[in-house]
Amino acid sequence: MSELFYDAAPNATRVAPARPAPRAYPAKPTEVTLFGTCVLDLFFPEAGLDAIRLLEREGIRVHFPQQQSCCGQPAWTSGYADEARDVARSQLTVLDNGLPVVVPSGSCAGMFRQHYREVFAEEPATLKRVEDLASRTFELTEFLLHVCKVEWRDLGQPTQVALHTSCSARREMNTHLHARELLGKLDKVERLDHDHESECCGFGGTFSVRMPEVSGAMVLDKTRALRNSGAVEMVTADGGCLLNINGALDKQKQAFRGRHLASFLWERISGEGAS
């Protein structure tokens, strides 16, 4: 696996990030920056808008810098360290406004909080900015739960959902715990466990391209477990996984689908789509 991901940067030092330590959460701010992620921007723009709606509902003004792009994770995990560093440097500049950065993707938030330290390990002068960004970065469900301390009235109809959490978001941001607790605040939503919840969906960025047979087998297991859970739909806070899982379900000609957690949450608390 190391040859697959790191062959373009054989001399790079890679240290697996530790699981996130407990953090002290600030008081709810009046303004934040939303880092929309390239996957949401290109494939699920409505989920990005729903993330903004969720934050604005809490009385928060949301800034969305138009210069933002990719966090650099695809290049970094594929071994293109120089290219990843160029992308990451531009994001440091765009997000250098002192505001909390809310990210509707645990993997991209983890890139900011964990991996930028590796990306700029040989640039001590940049690491201060990296640590500053890390301290201000929050995954969306984490922010809603621990900073906004949301209390919601569930306006939807009774339903059952299965939760999928990307493996990097689970390891680096504890996103599965935040999402579970948020779903638990919706009294008409039942979260059903499935026996592959902690397993990768097979996407892994370029992994799915370089090892399509292995990736295909993994997403087949994932989609089968989701459908067998008895849930009406799957929800996830990671756009890359959503793209992969829904694509596999479409290829299988299955009616079951997933959607981004931001859109699901907004529908439940706004009453949109309720019959």
Rank of each mutant, 00 (worst) to 15 (best):
L226G: 03
A12E: 07
M218C: 06
R153S: 07
S2R: 15
R136C: 03
T223P: 06
E197K: 10
K149F: 00
L55C: 05
G204C: 05
P212Y: 02
N11T: 04
V62C: 01
R227H: 10
Q252A: 13
D250F: 00
R227K: 15
R53C: 08
A12K: 09
F120S: 03
T159R: 14
E213V: 13
P124D: 04
S78F: 05
A274E: 06
G110Y: 06
E123V: 06
N174W: 03
E190K: 15
N174Y: 03
P20D: 03
E131F: 08
D96P: 03
L249V: 10
D50Y: 11
W266D: 15
E267L: 05
F264D: 05
A8C: 09
V62H: 09
R227C: 14
Q66Y: 00
L220F: 05
N97H: 14
K185D: 05
D7A: 15
T93G: 01
G156Y: 09
G202K: 12
S270P: 11
I60V: 10
P212G: 04
K188I: 01
V32C: 04
E46S: 12
R224V: 11
W76G: 02
P10L: 14
L140H: 08
V147S: 09
V214C: 00
T206E: 00
R268K: 14
A16M: 13
A24Y: 00
Q67T: 10
R117I: 01
D7C: 15
E123N: 09
S263G: 08
G258L: 15
L54K: 12
G184M: 13
P22A: 15
C70K: 06
C38G: 05
V102Q: 04
P65F: 06
L242C: 14
E139Y: 11
V102I: 04
F5S: 14
R210N: 10
A18T: 10
W266E: 15
D193W: 09
P65H: 08
V15P: 00
L95K: 07
M173W: 04
H164S: 11
S105M: 10
Y116E: 04
R113N: 08
F207E: 09
R257V: 07
G258Y: 12
L140M: 14
H146C: 07
A121K: 06
F120A: 02
L265S: 08
V209T: 10
L192V: 09
C70H: 05
P45G: 05
P17H: 12
R268T: 10
Q91H: 01
H63G: 00
E83K: 13
K28D: 01
M111S: 12
G36V: 13
T126F: 04
R191S: 04
P158W: 07
C70E: 06
H63L: 09
R180I: 04
T206M: 13
R57Y: 01
F120W: 00
A274Q: 05
P29V: 08
A179H: 00
V103S: 07
S229Q: 03
S229K: 07
H178I: 00
A21G: 01
N174F: 02
H260W: 12
V94I: 15
A18F: 01
S69K: 14
G205K: 06
R89V: 02
F44Y: 15
L42R: 13
H260T: 15
A21Q: 11
L127I: 02
